[in-house]
Every structure is written in structure tokens, then in C-alpha cells.
């Protein structure tokens, strides 16, 4: 016999279901209830840095868009600072909620491009935005990252991208630049499946 380890167990996850918008984005469910919905403005009007738009679709294993997904994003500002860790511009939350169009599954959001942030070892991680996806059929929220196609040099030395054993799977995390818009499609399953992390 041994002593008992007194750690609590984490509450188990369950799917967010098809009506996740009622709780987290009621305007999208079809009714106004809150004075302000959270997560609508990621960077705020005072944020410095390059203004960018990111858009894409989440696709299931059959290639169909996941129209009831809810995405949360989390990023540093244009100086590489996370809110809560250091000083950021007033109104810069670094966090937001992204809802697709229910007919097409296309989503987009506006923000500023983040700067590199420190990794665990020496050196910086390439600019990236953390993504967390929940939806009907997803039992535990999926973590992934968006990197930028015009940061080739930084991406080549990024410690996280370099953990991905198969080099062509790294490309699933790189959003393609076209003007000021980046395209980032997320494939949940199958051909060109996006890399998801256990963080």
C-alpha cells in the first residue's frame, strides 16, 4: 500500500455541440442578449503593427466545410507581448472568437500581425497565432497554430514547426499570403490533415 496522491482530476471535456453560439456568440444564434459580446475585437483600435485579415474554412474528413465550428484565437501583439504578461496597447486583448458564415463555412477575422515571442529554449518562435477549435463532433477542443507564409526564415528555425517529423505536414500550419489577406484552411481529417497539438 502507498499513500494516496491527492490531486484532483480535470473535469472531462464534452463536445460544444451545434448550438455553441447560444452561449458564446448569441448574436450569431439569432438573438441579442448581452450589452457586449466578447471576442469581437482581437487587437483593438490602438494596436500598432500591420493590419491583416485572415480567412479560411474548417473542412471535415469528407472535404465538406464545418459550418458550426467556433474558433478561438490567441496571439501576441506587434511587439511580441501577450496581454497579462507585459504591457500592451489599451484595448489589445489578443483573444477573439471567430464564427463562420452558416451557409458557406467561410470565416475571417481582422487583427494585427504578431511579432516573434520567446520559446522554451534560447531564441524566438516565428510569428504565430494559437487556434482552439470546438464544434459538434469534436469531443475535446483541438489546438493548432497559424504561421505566416512570408516569414520563411523565421519558420525554418521555429522550434515547434521543427518538432513535426514530416516536413510537408509543417505546411498545413502556414497561412498563404495574398495581398493583406492570409488564407488558412484547417483540415480535420484525411488528405493534408492539419497538425493538431497536445499542449
Amino acid at each position: 500500500m502507498v499513500q494516496k496522491l491527492d490531486y484532483l482530476k480535470e473535469t472531462p471535456s464534452q463536445t460544444a455541440g451545434p448550438y455553441v453560439h447560444i452561449g458564446l456568440a448569441p448574436g450569431d444564434a439569432g438573438f441579442d442578449i448581452y450589452r457586449q459580446e466578447l471576442g469581437r475585437d482581437i487587437a483593438g483600435p490602438e494596436a500598432t503593427g500591420e493590419r491583416i485579415k485572415i480567412q479560411g474554412q474548417v473542412l471535415d474528413g469528407t472535404g465538406a466545410p464545418v459550418k458550426d465550428v467556433l474558433i478561438e484565437v490567441w496571439q501576441a501583439n506587434a511587439a511580441g507581448i501577450y496581454p497579462g504578461i507585459g504591457d500592451v496597447e489599451t484595448g489589445f486583448r489578443g483573444w477573439g472568437r471567430v464564427i463562420p458564415d452558416f451557409e458557406t463555412g467561410e470565416w475571417s477575422f481582422a487583427t494585427v500581425k504578431p511579432a516573434p515571442v520567446p520559446g522554451r529554449g534560447p531564441g524566438l518562435m516565428a510569428p504565430h497565432i494559437n487556434f482552439w477549435l470546438v464544434a459538434r463532433g469534436i469531443n475535446v477542443g483541438l489546438n493548432t497554430r497559424l504561421y505566416f507564409s512570408d516569414e520563411t526564415a523565421a519558420n525554418e528555425t521555429d522550434p515547434i514547426l521543427n518538432l513535426i517529423e514530416q516536413a510537408d505536414r509543417r505546411d498545413t500550419l502556414v497561412a498563404r499570403r495574398d495581398g493583406s489577406v492570409y488564407r488558412f484552411d484547417i483540415r480535420l481529417q484525411g488528405d493534408k490533415e492539419t497538425v493538431f497539438f497536445d499542449v
Partner: peptide, 13 residues
């Protein structure tokens, strides 16, 4: 969940 579950292992960070 059948068509919305990744087939590859999660990458532990």
C-alpha cells in the same frame, strides 16, 4: 465525430 476526428496523432508540445 467519425468525420471530425483527426487520424494522425496529436503532436505533444
Amino acid at each position: 465525430s467519425v468525420s471530425r476526428s483527426p487520424q494522425n496523432a496529436l503532436l505533444s508540445l
